[in-house]
Amino acid sequence: MSGHLSVDEETLSRRAQAREAVLGPSSFTVSPSVLSQPLLEWSESAVWDVWSHPDLSINHRCLVTITILAIQGRMEQLELHVRGAFNNGWSSEQLAQWVNHLAVYGGVAAAAAALGVVQKISGEGKG
């Protein structure tokens, strides 16, 4: 990453472990371009530094993330993170309770859309 401070191996390892825990071992990669490179560099550090911080567990961060994504209507990202929830041991029953809770505090429309995502992922054998 040209023009940036170098990052130590421990930080890189912590980020990689968090990414794999959230997205699974076959997490997606994006081919950088002139347009995407700055965003990729920023997100690689900012996102995975947040996810790997030890003061909040991956499962707690997952709960926060899927709730925010559902309320924002970001279904493509929600799908990615619901897969991550299943990868981290969440059950279909836990996600069903999350959808119910989401309906109360985030709205029925957000919960209904999120339920569709959960059912799709669950149908793929992840739940």
Rank of each mutant, 00 (worst) to 15 (best):
T65E: 09
S13M: 07
S2K: 10
Q94K: 10
L69N: 01
W42L: 15
A114H: 01
L56G: 06
A113G: 02
L35P: 07
A85R: 01
E93P: 06
A112G: 05
H53I: 07
G106F: 08
Q97V: 06
W48F: 15
L12Y: 07
V64A: 15
A85C: 11
N100K: 13
L40T: 05
E76A: 14
N100R: 13
I58A: 05
P54G: 12
A103I: 07
A46S: 11
L78A: 03
A70W: 00
A16L: 04
W51R: 03
V118I: 15
W42H: 15
S91Q: 01
H53Q: 14
H60R: 13
V47E: 06
E124V: 02
V34C: 07
G107L: 04
Q97H: 11
L35N: 10
P32I: 06
E124P: 04
L56D: 05
L5K: 10
V50N: 10
E93G: 12
W90F: 13
D49V: 10
Q97M: 06
A113W: 01
V99I: 15
W98E: 09
N88G: 12
Q72H: 14
G73I: 02
L69T: 02
V34M: 12
F86C: 04
Q37V: 11
G127C: 01
V99W: 02
L63S: 13
R14L: 15
H101N: 12
L23Q: 07
L80A: 14
R14E: 11
N100P: 05
F28C: 04
A112F: 05
K126Q: 15
A111C: 05
S92R: 14
G73D: 01
E9M: 08
S52A: 14
T67W: 04
S57G: 12
S36M: 10
